[in-house]
Design a protein around this nucleic acid. Structure first.
Length: 514
DNA sequence: ATTCCCAGCGCG
DNA sequence: AAAGCGCGCTGGGAAT
């Protein structure tokens, strides 16, 4: 028997086959050696997480091996108009571009775009802030701004945005199928900081990330012969977990009420004349607020970000509303302290803005020009939870979720960016683990029903089962996804809803027979 | 020819 | 004055 010492590999003359054997041997023996060291560092908490991830490999591998059936007819039908349109738009863009700088313009090159828009067209540069630095941007938001403000930018911005969108879709439609025609992805069950899975092209370089497919492109994915697809997701998952982790009873009630966003409007603006009539309340919430936003739009779009530590400045930029309006929303949403003089100035500038309500509803601290106003807000628990998270971060540098997943934070513990990561961590991780618990149970307990899991999208599972068995199977899926969890002394149950259909786009919500 | 980083963008 | 978080993929362009 030939003995090869790993310390002498460099000096060995190995055949191709022998190289592969050595590679394989090192893969196994080194993994074992590493495990013998690492295993000693596990404690009860991390051991539990490790065990769960090992178990998760089973359903993950079965999904990766099975892959998804693609309806190539549909893919073709989607592809054709995209290609046709792409040719047209690209031709147009280049026609205009040649008029400006006598050559084509590559819409994929930020460098060319910068030079073209900000030098040749002489448009004022749009600045974005990344990593604490100002950067000239040519992203979608910048292009939308330019086309709004400067007529000469319109044809360019329009076609660049269109081309980017088309390319994104074509990439999905054109990604390589395996030899049996199926599209396979690779799931990493332990690839992220939060415990969520990630998805990428398969180990053979075929397929693609299955967790960022747009609704429209989902149309190409179909069940196998005799099956129907199902897509079961945890309802309002992140909001619910946030509510329980913050321990904010008002927000919990809002999440578990008829319509989350309307409930939030009700809590944020309690004096709009609410009744017990749900339809009437919805109408109130849909009344215009500022700009093109209704009250309900505002809560829907600003609430989630605010839960995760989005600053008023960024909220204003993001929603294209004044800083004062963004600040006002956050004060009403989760309270805070602000200078009285600011509120008075804003009130003077904007009589309709409701800033006087903030002054009247708040507690004034101190006297004279430096007075502050403390505002309670609709969901003070959320701000309190942010503060508690900051404290825990400073103290330990680690956070542990209700499902016992611990994360070490390596950034500077007193920086805002580290705090925001910490705030996002617990809800995001908890949902991921909860969904994967459900996924495991559905996979493990429902094989005999002819059910197969095909995909995982963070808070939802995609799968298939034999046509006609909906009434029998769907309640079993939903039951297995419902895993009660105790958080801060309360029991949280997140319900799921389940859609079915003959492709991944055109699905209908399933309801127990009516 | 290959590797690396960046900007941009899709999903949750 | 100015960074919601978590991922992966593509293409451009510079460096190797």
């Amino acid at each position: 028997m030939k003995v090869i010492k790993n310390t002498e590999i460099a000096a060995q003359e190995l055949s191709k086959e022998q190289t592969l054997w050595v590679y394989c041997g090192l893969d196994c023996s080194l993994t074992s050696e590493i495990w013998s060291k690492l295993s000693k560092e596990l404690d009860e908490t991390t051991k539990h997480t490790y065990k769960f991830e090992l178990d998760s490999l089973k359903p993950a591998l079965s999904m990766m091996l099975r892959g998804l059936k693609v309806d190539e007819m549909k893919a073709g039908l989607l592809r054709a108009p995209l290609i046709k349109n792409r040719v047209k738009v690209e031709r147009m863009l280049n026609l205009f571009a040649n008029a400006v700088w006598d050559k084509d313009l590559n819409h994929n090159s930020p460098l060319q775009l910068k030079s073209f828009l900000y030098e040749w067209l002489n448009l004022p540069p749009v600045i974005a802030y990344t990593k604490g630095k100002q950067k000239v941007s040519t992203d979608k938001e910048a292009l939308e701004h330019l086309r709004r403000e400067y007529p000469r930018a319109r044809p360019f911005c329009n076609s660049i945005i269109t081309l980017r969108d088309i390319d994104k879709q074509l990439n999905i439609l054109n990604c390589e199928r395996d030899s049996d025609g199926r599209l396979r992805t690779s799931f990493k069950v332990a690839g992220t900081e939060t415990g969520r899975w990630s998805s990428s092209e398969s180990p053979w370089g075929t397929g693609t990330n299955l967790q960022n497919i747009t609704k429209d492109m989902r149309e190409i994915f179909v069940p196998d012969e005799g099956n129907v697809l199902f897509y079961a997701d945890l309802e309002q998952a992140e909001s619910r977990v946030t509510a329980y982790i913050a321990g904010d009873q008002g927000y919990i009630n809002a999440c578990e009420g008829e319509d989350l966003h309307t409930q939030v409007v009700k809590m944020v603006w309690p004096n709009m004349g609410w009744s017990s009539d749900l339809a009437q309340n919805r109408e109130l919430a849909d009344r215009p607020y500022i700009g093109h936003f209704s009250y309900r739009d505002m809560c829907k779009r600003a609430g989630h970000g605010t839960n995760y530590g989005l600053s008023a400045t960024s909220l204003g930029r993001h929603l294209k509303i004044k800083l004062s309006h963004a600040t006002r929303f956050q004060l009403l949403y989760y309270g805070g302290v602000i200078a009285l003089s600011s509120l008075e100035r804003w009130h003077k500038q904007d009589k309709e803005g409701g800033f006087h309500e903030l002054i009247d509803g708040g507690t004034i601290i101190g006297t004279g020009p430096s007075s502050l106003v403390r505002i309670q807000g609709a969901f003070p628990g959320i701000r309190k939870w942010h503060d508690e998270t900051a404290k825990q971060l400073q103290l330990e540098g680690t956070l542990t979720t209700p499902l016992g997943r611990r994360r070490q934070f390596w950034g500077r513990l007193d920086e805002a960016t580290t705090l925001r990561k910490a705030i996002a961590y617990v809800p995001q991780s908890t949902i991921g683990d909860l969904l994967n618990m459900g996924l495991y149970r559905v996979w493990d307990e429902m094989k005999d029903d002819g059910l197969q899991i095909l995909g995982q999208v963070h808070d939802a599972i995609l799968g298939q089962f034999p046509i006609g068995k909906e009434a029998e199977i769907i309640p079993k899926i939903l039951a297995r996804m419902e895993n009660p969890l105790e958080i801060k002394g309360r029991q949280m149950i997140i319900p799921s809803d389940c859609e079915t259909g003959l492709d991944w786009k055109n699905m209908k919500k399933w309801k127990p027979h009516e």
